[in-house]
Design a binder for these strands. Structure first.
Lengths: 340, 340
DNA sequence: CCGGTTGACTATAACGATAAAGGCTATAAG
DNA sequence: CTTATAGCCTTTATCGTTATAGTCAACCGG
């Protein structure tokens, strides 16, 4: 129909006819083309889906995730795409939003390895970009070198002579567990980010001549600071073998640890050194300011979205963004060497 | 096709045939019905759109908005709908996400009166629910009695004898302005919530025999606490006629005001009383704990979404949720009566 | 043995849009 | 005067699904 052109390509027909069409369309109660028809014909839905295993509000509460969302939002605004956030899937055997929703592509954010959700999404055969996940063959991916970054910052701490370390880890297995984990669980790790950062810490520990197996790893559910604070208190309370440095895989958990230390009357960094990861905005403003790794979370979102909307070409090569060690005040040498 | 039934209505055909179909579909590379076709036929898109004039990340940073989002998210998860957040529209003359996006209905949240966006959305002729907005004819609406609630809390403060008041207002006109506003601007107010709360404060002031025209109103852009803190400092610095009570239209701004007072060496509530609105989670935990109005933000989201997905019948009557005055510690009588 | 009922599957016809090709007129070129 | 070109508009076909109506065999009671 010429009506289609009237709405979509003003330049293709005379202003006169266009006016007549728009006018008569209006009083026939026609308010422009319906997305359903367009979608069938052209495949264009006008929205990008975002899939993440956590409850939707968490995507924004968490400063790091929220920077990522802000990056996506910018691109969505520029191109006037909707951002369709998919709710977590409880029962994968039933029909899910993944199967039904009308979108142009999927951004997968921090979905655990081997999750059945991934297969389902790939089944939709739409453009897909993974972020902060293990590389999937034939799928675009954006991320950072988590292992290298973790090694850098852990090395920075260990060079100061710390021997007693504790690790606050992001989710290792998606079962809602928080607490001290054993080696077996670490082996079965399905969180790509947690695994890579653990490897980075391990690299640095080995460099420093410390047995990584002797370093306790506390897994903290959904990057929660209250949870991090709770477990930090558990291991800081100990009189003997108390860690002099805490490796936290996120700034948010590092703040939880910081709060725990303060509440136990310990001074940071005098009594304990604490490092984070992400460099969220609050990291520079805390007392003490957090030594951390800066990662371009917002740029990750922009890049993932840019690939979806076609601003960037779709490539299945891993797009690695750079990180930077930010040295602030939360790290110092151990006060009393407790022996090797 | 029987294929459709195989996917959508397992019970309608024999398990045997269903298996055969699913199997041969799978190796023909068919991964289930495409939304485009279903949408054309049935109109179902699998997602609810949310429209709000602020940048997307703000919807979640702000504790009150984020509670609202959490309410929507719950319902979306239960029914496995996507939640399509629409980006703010900069240029309404061009094609926007509103016109193009494939969704089943719109939730409009806090859009200013007479905004051209509203007409555009209504043009889509999909189920629509407004929240915290002026009532539109023939459109479902969810909200609270802002005027009554504001009157309650302002009355509570004024009964204690305060005569010098300052008001921190939510957005009055959508032009990004922050600062002291004149009566003309108040008259032209396009924010339904701001207007109703202003009216409630005015009611209470009149009840107390105070001329509302003499009470300064500071408008704060996008409910920002830093901005609220800045302007609060401006009027608390004054030696003469310094307000002894601050009416803030949100807890977030109240916290900004609290910070400002503290930084100026004033004690709350001894030197200044501060009230908020919303009862966000942080309101109970601050020092002093905030006296405020509890409003069911999460329930608003649930209800709006429930109407969209059909859990609740679509009615164009205003759905009013209830509020409650929460008396905590941030309000006291004025220390020195400064004369009437 | 027959009409009626049930159950299991199949055929048809739309939903609303746009890409692509086709027609028609007016002007330009030969 | 004929043919080519361009501009503008119209026709046709098709995207993938599901509601509806229809077919067909088997079964059942009379």
């Amino acid at each position: 129909m010429t009506v289609s052109n009237a709405f979509n390509r003003p330049e293709e027909l005379s202003a006169n006819l266009r006016q007549r069409i728009l006018a008569s369309a209006a009083d026939a109660g026609y308010h422009g083309p319906r997305p359903s028809g367009r979608m069938l014909r052209t495949g264009f839905a006008g929205a990008i889906a975002l899939s993440n295993p956590d409850p939707i509000p968490h995507l924004f509460e968490d400063s790091n995730a929220s920077a990522f969302m802000a990056g996506i939002s910018e691109v969505c605004e520029k191109h006037q795409y909707g951002l369709t956030v998919l709710p977590p899937v409880r029962d994968i055997t039933r029909a899910t939003a993944i199967d039904k929703v009308a979108v142009d592509g999927f951004i997968l954010y921090a979905i655990p390895d081997h999750s059945s959700i991934i297969k389902r999404i790939l089944g939709r055969q739409l453009p897909t970009v993974t972020v902060d996940m293990s590389k999937l063959p034939e799928v675009a991916a954006v991320g950072i070198d988590d292992r290298d970054a973790s090694r850098k910052i852990a090395g920075h701490v260990l060079e100061l002579g710390h021997r007693q370390i504790a690790i606050l880890s992001l989710e290792i297995l998606p079962d809602g567990f928080s607490g001290l984990v054993n080696g077996d669980r670490v082996q079965r790790c399905r969180g790509s980010v947690a695994r890579q950062r653990l490897l980075g810490y391990t690299d640095a520990l080995k460099d420093a001549g410390i047995d990584p197996g002797s370093v306790p790893v506390y897994e903290i559910r959904i990057n929660d600071d209250a949870e991090a604070s709770y477990w930090t208190k558990q291991f800081l309370k100990r009189k003997r073998g108390r860690p002099t440095a805490i490796f936290s895989m996120s700034d948010r958990m590092a703040f939880g640890a910081l709060r725990a230390a303060t509440q136990l009357g310990l001074k940071v960094p005098r009594d304990v050194s604490i490092i984070g990861f992400d460099d969220i905005p609050q990291a520079a403003g805390s007392t003490p300011a957090l030594t951390t790794i800066r990662q371009p979370s917002q740029a990750k979102g922009q890049m993932a979205a840019a690939i979806m909307v076609g601003d960037l070409p779709y490539t299945t090569e891993f797009q690695e963004l750079s990180t930077e060690l930010i040295v602030r005040e939360s790290v110092a040498g151990p006060r009393i060497a407790k022996g090797s």
